[in-house]
Computed example of a mutant assay.
Amino acid sequence: MFFLQVDEEISIKLLEKRDAQLLFQLTEHSRDHLRNWLGWVDYSRTLKDTKAFIKLANQKYADSTDLVTMIWYRGIPAGSLALYDIKWNNYSANIGYWLGKDFEGKGIMTRSCGAMVDYSFGTLGLNRLELKAALENKRSRSVAERLGFKQEGELRQAEWLYDHFVNVALYGMLAEDWAFPKT
């Protein structure tokens, strides 16, 4: 099972069936907030939906194509961080994340992503990570930029959010460019 201690406040662990209620509650509590930028929120309306998502995520983990984790902050579930669409033949993956509304502004995501990038390049031996964020999602984009991801382009109308398309910023990071401060 995947577990990563980020620092004294934060750990990340593989999302498990037993986390379903906690993940659902966090999503429910932050639903309106998350809905601004994440297209999956309306498809996760019940505990049953969350359980189905975790089952699929665990199957993808077993297939070595995704790693979906829960971020724990001071022992409380704070959000999710994932490596997905891992392409072993290209040594690449995508990284995605979200935080519950009560956890923003504490550096949780920057520290968590930094640890996941370290793991991706150091342990998994990947060479490239990609990160996509809605162009107007300044908080998500600032995490990428603080970590040193380079904006490589802008994808026009790349995501459908309920009733409209949004443009997406595409960021990339290469193993040779990774220089997040190690503590």
Rank of each mutant, 00 (worst) to 15 (best):
Y162L: 14
M109H: 08
T110Q: 01
M116E: 02
R146A: 13
D42A: 08
Y97F: 11
N94M: 07
A179W: 06
M109C: 15
A78S: 07
W37T: 05
Y162Q: 09
T65A: 02
E152W: 11
V143Y: 11
L34N: 05
D66T: 00
Y91L: 12
L22M: 10
N127P: 06
K55D: 14
L23C: 12
F149G: 00
H29Q: 14
W178S: 03
V117D: 07
N137I: 00
V117F: 05
W88R: 09
F3L: 13
K55E: 09
T110R: 00
D118C: 02
K51H: 01
T110E: 04
A134I: 13
F180N: 06
F165Y: 03
F53P: 02
E28A: 11
L34W: 09
D102V: 03
A144I: 03
G79T: 02
A62R: 14
L126C: 03
F2V: 10
V6L: 00
G172T: 00
A20C: 04
F2T: 09
A52E: 12
L124S: 07
L14K: 15
K51F: 04
K87R: 12
Q157R: 09
L47V: 07
D49Q: 13
T27H: 11
V117R: 03
I76P: 01
L38R: 01
S140L: 07
E16D: 08
Y43T: 00
R18G: 03
Y73R: 02
E176S: 15
W88E: 05
G148E: 14
M116V: 13
E130Q: 11
K87F: 09
K138F: 07
S140C: 14
V6R: 08
Y84Q: 12
A52N: 06
A179T: 10
I95K: 08
A78Y: 04
R139T: 05
F2P: 07
G114P: 05
N167Q: 02
N58A: 10
Y119H: 12
G100M: 00
F121N: 00
G75W: 06
G100S: 04
A93V: 05
G79N: 06
N58M: 12
G39S: 14
R35P: 04
V68D: 05
L34A: 11
S11Q: 10
C113P: 00
L155S: 03
S11I: 00
G172A: 09
L83C: 02
W72Q: 01
A179Y: 05
R111Q: 11
S30E: 04
K150V: 06
G79D: 07
H29E: 15
G96N: 13
D63L: 06
M109D: 13
L147Y: 08
Y119D: 09
D42M: 07
R146F: 01
D102W: 03
F103E: 14
L129I: 02
I76E: 14
F53Y: 01
K132V: 15
L124T: 10
K87N: 08
G148R: 13
